[in-house]
């Protein structure tokens, strides 16, 4: 009897469940907890930011002050604000210069390391160190390295007979000092991903090219870079998004100074919203930036991520 009963019960069980819930509905059930988290804690703040941006909110005015509805005034203010545009332009400049240097250095290094004969693994591991360290913490250390009086970099400059620099205090130099820091921290990111891309390239086309006697330059231009390009573009987009919202090392080194030469958009919004407590203006500006980032990065990323994961599935 038992032998008969056992599978019978299970089968009806499966059938019953199938009737209760289709695979599609089951999938939605599984996704729900994550969506609740992202909705309540991700979208609600966004709507709240829109709410803030449409009112007059000045936290210094005291708790009794009414937050009056002012329509699009804050957006009008933002689009007419020179400092807002200056901060955006500065951030764009920073991101373009910094990410370009990282891409060039990272890709060249990846090629170099890919052809190393010894210690490839150790070298790769050591390049992880800057990536893993908290930007805020190592930023403080870089402040020490950059120190005009007892910093190591100035000591090195003096030792080779050059003029010492006021790395973080000179308004002509400070932004570039931040760029150097960013390049130090993130070049390994480009390097590691490019290296992984290089190592997973198919062997056959390269062997064929070698048999045909193609020049190294031609192989690079016609084979390596086209095959690598999806990975490189993905790296570029991810890096650009991150560079555009740089905050940590600014907050722990220059705090936007001297003057405002290192004030990136995130630090600028922090100052307007949480130092001057004009959350309305800062929210309006943040929403404009959010829009720009989503338009620029969103579409790029969507195509790339899909391409990459499709490819991975068939590998």
């Amino acid at each position: 009897m038992k032998k008969m009963d056992y599978p019978m019960i299970d089968l009806t069980d499966i059938r019953k469940r199938k009737k209760i819930m289709s695979d599609g509905a089951y999938g939605i059930l599984l996704v729900t907890p994550a969506l609740i988290v992202l909705f309540f804690f991700g979208l609600v703040p966004l709507f709240y930011a829109i709410n803030l941006s449409l009112r007059h909110v000045d936290l210094t005015a005291g708790p009794a002050a009414k937050w009056q509805f002012v329509g699009l005034n804050n957006f009008r203010f933002a689009l007419n604000s020179d400092v807002f545009f200056a901060a955006s332009a500065r951030t764009a400049f920073f991101a373009v210069v910094s990410v370009s240097i990282q891409m060039v250095l990272g890709i060249s290094l990846a090629f170099l390391i890919n052809q190393l004969r010894w210690f490839k693994g150790i070298v790769r591991a050591l390049f992880l160190l800057p990536l893993a360290s908290a930007p805020a913490a190592v930023g403080m250390i870089w402040r020490y390295l950059y120190d005009a009086d007892f910093g190591v970099y100035n000591a090195a400059l003096r030792a080779i007979g050059l003029q010492p620099l006021n790395w973080l205090g000179d308004s002509n130099v400070a932004l570039f000092s931040i760029i150097i820091f960013d390049v130090w921290q993130w070049t390994p990111f480009v390097l590691l991903i490019t290296l992984a891309g290089l190592q997973s390239l198919p062997k056959e086309p390269f062997e064929a090219a070698e048999l045909d006697g193609a020049s190294t330059f031609k192989v690079l231009r016609r084979l390596t870079f086209p095959l690598l390009s999806p990975v490189l573009i993905l790296v570029f987009v991810l890096r650009s998004i991150d560079a555009a919202r740089l905050y940590d090392p600014i907050a722990t080194t220059t705090r936007g100074g001297p003057g405002a030469v290192t004030e990136t958009i995130t630090y600028f919004l922090y100052r307007v919203g949480l130092k001057q407590f004009r959350l309305d203006q800062a929210s309006a500006m943040a929403l404009i930036i959010l829009f720009v980032i989503i338009v620029f990065a969103g579409f790029m990323l969507r195509r790339l991520m899909r391409q990459q994961s499709e490819r991975a599935r068939f590998n």
Binding site: A34, L38, G42, V44, P45, L46, Y48, A49, L52, L59, I241, A244, R245, Y247, I265, T266, L269, Y270, G273, L274, L279, A282, S283, A286, L287, I289, L290, I293, I294, A297, G298, L301, R302, M305
Partner: peptide, 21 residues
């Protein structure tokens, strides 16, 4: 993809409403 987009949001845009909330 919508979920990925939330990760690309600039944190500063979220932290200000959070501060008040």
């Amino acid at each position: 993809f919508f979920i990925l987009t939330t990760r690309m949001m600039p944190a500063i845009a979220v932290v200000m409403p959070f501060f008040v909330i």
